[in-house]
Amino acid sequence: MKSIADINAIREKMQKVLGTRDAQDDADTRIVIGMATCGIAAGARPVFTAFLEEAAKRNLGNVKVTQSGCLGMCKFEPMAQVYIPGKEVVTYVKLDAEAAKRIVSEHIVNGNVVAEYTLDIE
């Protein structure tokens, strides 16, 4: 896309996609990434982008990637929490883009929590 006028083509394509998606939407899975000063400084931006791109690549229309403020444990940033309906919340810590991709494929798609990035408080 080089100019704003190009958005017309994308809009037309999107109208078709959105029409079909509404019907198949079921309960939402949410991935929430901490995006306060601590998160941003530790590398939350590429983590957010990786979650978003991986979910889009796998056509996970029911997965919402969103942001939150500081989760109160800055030294564990970048952090993310995964909310799957009917399951316990999983908090992931010290993430990078590769970890985010793994969480989408192993946890969100296949249901296996990626234990090496979960929060383990002693």
């Binding site: 958005i7 809009r11 999107m14 109208q15 978003l52 889009a56």
Partner: peptide, 16 residues
């Protein structure tokens, strides 16, 4: 330009 399409759709964000 987007009219009724939400700006936060993945395809729109990535074009932007």
């Amino acid at each position: 330009e987007l009219d009724d399409i939400p700006i936060d759709e993945y395809e729109i964000i990535s074009s932007i």
